[in-house]
C-alpha cells in the first residue's frame, strides 16, 4: 500500500506550526515558529499580535515542513488543520491557509479539533497504542478526561467547572513573580521546594465526581501569599510552588485513575501542555503501576501546540473519509462531540 502524507497546520494560539506526517505515525517534519519571546514582554498572549505573527510565518513554516520532509507540495495527500477551539483571529489564518492549499492541490481538506489533536499526539510517540483508551488532556485552556472508544469516537467523562489546570499554573506563576510562560517556570521553582510544606485544598467535589475545579485552590494560594506578606512573614516561594503543584497533580491523578476504573480501560494517556510536567508524569506512572494500568504520554515537544499531532489526527479522518468543505469556518468555542 502506498504511503499517505498528511500536511498538518496549527495556529490556534501562539505557535505557528506545520508538519508532514506519514501514515499517521512517522513525523517527517514538525516546524514550530514560537511566539513566546514576543508575548513574554506583555506577560501573556496578545491575540492581535499572535494573529499578525501567524500571517507573517504561515507560508514559511509550510514551505519548510514540506521541504524538510524531502517532498514537494504535490506529494501531499491531504491538509489537516485545527479549526477550534482557540483564539479566533489566530485560527482563521491556519484554516484559510489549509483550505487554499487543499483547493489549489485538489486534495482533501481535513478539519481537526484541538483536543483531539492533543490526544492523538500519543499515537505518534507510542506506535503500539490502540483504542479503547482514556486520555487526560491538560493545558492552558483545557482539563478534560476523554474516553477514546474507537478511533475518532469520543466520550467526555469529566471536565473543569472553572479554570483549566494550565490556567491555574499560569496565574499562580504570575502571583509568584515568574515570567511567561508560567507553567515551566513554576515547575522549575517547585523542584527546589517541599511539596508538603503548605497544605492547599484539593477540590474533590462530590464523591466519585470526575469534574475538576481549580479556582478555589488558586484563591487559597493567593490568600496565603497575601496573609504572609501582610504579616511580614518570610515566604519560601519554592515551597509554595511545590505545594501548589502537588495539589493540582494529586487531583488530576486520582480522578483519572477513578475514570479508568469506571470505564474499564487498561490504557491511560496524558496530553496537552501540562503533560510535559515531570512531577505529573511521575505521579501518573506510580499510580498506574499500582493499579495495573498501562500509562502513556507524548514526548515533551509533542505536548505543547504543534502541527504533527494535527496531521496525525487528520490521518485518521482521512482514512474515515471525513473531509471539510471550502466554506469551513474557524470556531473560538467548539465542542469535541457535536450533538
Amino acid at each position: 500500500m502506498p504511503s499517505t502524507w498528511i500536511l498538518g497546520i496549527e495556529t490556534s494560539c501562539d505557535e505557528t506550526s506545520a508538519s508532514v506526517v506519514r501514515d499517521g505515525s512517522y513525523i517527517a517534519s514538525n516546524i514550530v515558529a514560537s511566539q513566546i519571546p514576543i508575548h513574554r514582554q506583555y506577560g501573556g498572549v496578545v491575540p492581535e499580535v499572535a494573529s499578525r505573527q501567524h500571517l507573517e510565518k504561515i507560508t514559511y513554516v509550510v514551505d519548510k515542513a514540506v521541504d524538510d520532509a524531502g517532498l514537494g507540495l504535490d506529494d501531499i495527500d491531504g491538509v489537516a488543520v485545527t479549526v477550534g477551539p482557540g483564539l479566533i483571529g489566530a485560527l482563521l489564518v491556519g484554516v484559510a491557509a489549509a483550505k487554499a492549499y487543499s483547493y489549489a492541490l485538489n486534495i482533501p481538506f481535513i478539519p481537526v479539533h484541538h483536543l483531539e489533536a492533543h490526544l492523538y499526539a500519543n499515537f505518534l510517540s507510542n506506535t503500539e497504542l490502540a483504542p479503547p483508551l482514556l486520555c487526560l488532556v491538560v493545558s492552558g485552556g483545557h482539563t478534560s478526561l476523554i474516553l477514546l472508544k474507537d478511533h475518532l469516537e469520543y466520550e467526555i467523562m469529566g471536565t473543569t467547572r472553572d479554570d483549566a489546570a494550565g490556567e491555574a499554573f499560569d496565574k499562580i506563576a504570575r502571583v509568584l513573580g515568574l515570567p511567561y510562560p508560567g507553567g515551566p517556570a513554576l515547575e522549575e521553582l517547585a523542584s527546589q521546594g517541599d511539596p508538603q510544606a503548605v497544605h492547599f485544598p484539593r477540590a474533590w467535589l462530590s464523591k466519585d465526581s470526575l469534574e475538576f475545579s481549580f479556582s478555589g485552590l488558586k484563591t487559597a494560594v493567593m490568600n496565603y501569599m497575601r496573609d504572609k506578606q501582610g504579616n511580614e512573614e518570610a515566604v519560601s516561594l519554592p515551597d509554595v510552588a511545590a505545594s501548589f503543584q502537588a495539589a493540582v497533580v494529586e487531583v488530576l491523578v486520582v480522578k483519572t485513575i477513578l475514570a479508568a476504573k469506571k470505564s474499564g480501560v487498561r490504557d491511560v494517556c496524558l496530553a496537552g501542555g501540562v503533560a510535559a510536567n515531570s512531577t505529573l508524569r511521575e505521579q501518573f506512572q506510580r499510580a498506574a503501576d499500582q493499579e495495573g494500568l498501562r500509562f502513556y504520554f507524548p514526548e515533551k515537544k509533542l505536548c505543547t501546540d504543534n502541527a504533527a499531532m494535527v496531521a496525525c489526527a487528520g490521518y485518521f479522518h482521512y482514512l474515515a473519509e471525513e473531509f471539510g468543505t471550502l466554506a469551513q469556518e474557524a470556531y473560538a468555542n467548539y465542542p469535541l462531540i457535536n450533538a
Binding site: 492581535e48 494573529s51 501567524h54 500571517l55 504561515i58 507560508t59 509550510v62 514551505d63 507540495l73 479566533i88 483571529g89 482563521l92 489564518v93 484559510a96 491557509a97 489549509a98 483550505k99 487554499a100 492549499y101 483547493y103 489549489a104 492541490l105
Partner: peptide, 19 residues
C-alpha cells in the same frame, strides 16, 4: 478590518505558494 484582511491575504499567499 484586520481580521478580514488576514483571511484574504492568507488565502492569496497559500494559493500563490502552491502554484
Amino acid at each position: 478590518s484586520f481580521t478580514s484582511l488576514r483571511v484574504g491575504l492568507t488565502t492569496c499567499k497559500a494559493l500563490a505558494h502552491t502554484v
